Structures are given as C-alpha cells and as structure tokens.
Simulated scan of single mutants.
Amino acid sequence: MVEVSKVSKKYGHKLVVEDVSVQVQKGKITSFIGPNGAGKSTLLSMVSRLIKRDTGEVFIDGTEISAWKSNDLAKRISILKQANHLSVRLTIKDLVRFGRFPYSQGKLSKEDERYVEEAIHYMELEDMQDKYLDQLSGGQQQRAFIAMVIAQNTDYVLLDEPLNNLDMKHSVQIMKVLRRLVDELGKTVVIVIHDINFASCYSDFIVALKDGKIIKEGPVQDIITPAVLKDIYEMDIEIQEINGNRICIYF
C-alpha cells in the first residue's frame, strides 16, 4: 500500500499541494483527476520521490520513502513522467532494456531479456523495436516508454498522463494493458489522467484534486456523478450509462 500523510509542496509563494492525505490500495487502478493546476502531477512526483516534499510523509508498504535505498525503490516503484527527453540516440529495444537497470546494472541476463521481449510484445512494438526513437511519432515514443516501465516489473506503476500524444486506438490499448497488469499480474497502477471517461471505464478508485487539495475520493460510482463533477470542473456534465460504464457528456 502507498500511504500519503499530510503532504504539501510550495513553489515560491504558490502552494501547489496542500496537506494531502490519501491511501492507494494494492492491486487496483487509482486515477488522479482534476483541472489543470490541481496538483496531480506534483503529488505523483512526491509519491515516487522524484521531487521533495515540504511537509508530510509517504509510506511504501509501511516504510517511509526517504528510508528506501534508490535501487531498492526502483525495484518497487516505476514512474513515467509527462516529458521524457533523452540526449542519446536509442532504439526502442535499447530504451526498454533501461527498465531492467535496477536488476542488471547494465549486464542483462536471459531473464532480463525475457522481460524486455514481453514488454515489447505487450505494447505491440515488435515490428519497430530496432527503430530509433527520433524516427518515431509521438504516440510510438509514448508506447516505447510505457514498455520500458512494464519491463521494470515493479509492484507499483505510476504514470503521469500516459495517453499524451496517443490516438484513440492506442489510448484504448494502453488502458487495456494497464487493466491487464492489475488483473493478471497483481500490479498497483496510479495514473494522472485528463480524460474522465477513460478514468470512469478503467479505474477502480478515483481521487479528485482541485487547487492542491483532495475534494473527493472513492470508487467510480461515487465520483462520476453530475454533482461531484460540477464541483471539480465547474461545469454541468451529463452522465449516461453504457454497457455498465458511466460516460460523461460534456461537449
């Protein structure tokens, strides 16, 4: 379990995350939703220790995150940020191999290569695995980075807007892959996501943030309601149920 207790973060005079406490249950997909500037990405980065907290504590399976050795933490938590810039020229396969670094330290075993191949297969990248990243579209690059995270084979997978640059087909593919990681492999997935219909259809639990604070959290049926969504987004959103999923009509 990930436990966040009274965490805050300030940039200059602006309080971006204010006194946030939340628990992320194991073996579930938890989505962070909310308008721009709500503090979603900052909170995710503090959970993964990418940025420092000003106050508060974060526990991973009962151990405060500051007590984890970096290599041990990298075997427990993987994170994909919004922006991924590399200064070296890599193929997709080379990139995905980076996901095994906490285990291999650069000397990949047969087991490491198996995880790499499985991740490439998961993301349907076999036919382009030898292409260089700078030869790919934005969506293909995004899928390659997600394959790298999958190859890392951590208990907790944190993704900051993983559907960026993806068309409809590949957005659905990514969400189905995340659902499989949870349902088949027992992973715990936390995503920052803007598309509330994807959050509605694929999440087990939703945490809604606004102005740096959690304003509502709970299972999908408690969050995807006109009243709650109006509180979050300040607009009227109609809800229709289709095939058991709550779909938001806001166009």
Rank of each mutant, 00 (worst) to 15 (best):
L86K: 07
V88P: 06
V88N: 05
R89P: 03
L90S: 03
I92Y: 01
I92M: 02
K93A: 04
D94Y: 07
D94V: 03
L95R: 00
L95Q: 01
V96A: 05
V96K: 04
F98Q: 11
F98S: 02
F98K: 12
G99Y: 00
G99T: 00
G99I: 00
F101I: 09
F101Q: 10
P102D: 15
Y103L: 11
Q105L: 15
Q105K: 12
G106A: 09
G106H: 05
G106C: 13
K107Y: 08
K107C: 12
K107H: 10
S109L: 09
K110N: 00
K110F: 00
E111R: 13
E113R: 02
V116S: 02
Y122C: 05
M123K: 02
E124T: 09
L125V: 11
M128H: 11
Q129R: 15
Q129M: 13
Q129W: 05
D130F: 07
D130N: 15
L133N: 04
L133P: 02
L133K: 05
L133G: 02
D134M: 07
Q135Y: 00
Q135L: 03
S137M: 01
G138R: 14
Q140A: 12
Q140Y: 13
Q141C: 08
Q141K: 15
Q141V: 01
Q142A: 06
R143N: 04
R143I: 04
R143H: 06
F145S: 03
F145A: 05
F145Y: 13
F145I: 04
I146D: 01
I146E: 01
A147F: 06
A147P: 10
M148A: 10
M148C: 10
V149R: 13
I150Q: 07
I150N: 10
A151N: 12
A151S: 15
Q152C: 14
Q152A: 15
N153D: 14
N153W: 11
N153Y: 15
T154K: 06
T154W: 09
D155M: 12
D155T: 11
Y156G: 00
Y156C: 02
Y156N: 03
V157Q: 02
V157P: 03
V157W: 01
L158P: 09
L159D: 08
D160P: 01
D160F: 02
E161R: 01
L163V: 13
L163W: 03
N164H: 09
N165R: 08
N165D: 09
L166N: 14
L166F: 06
D167R: 04
M168N: 11
K169D: 01
K169E: 13
H170Y: 15
H170C: 11
H170W: 13
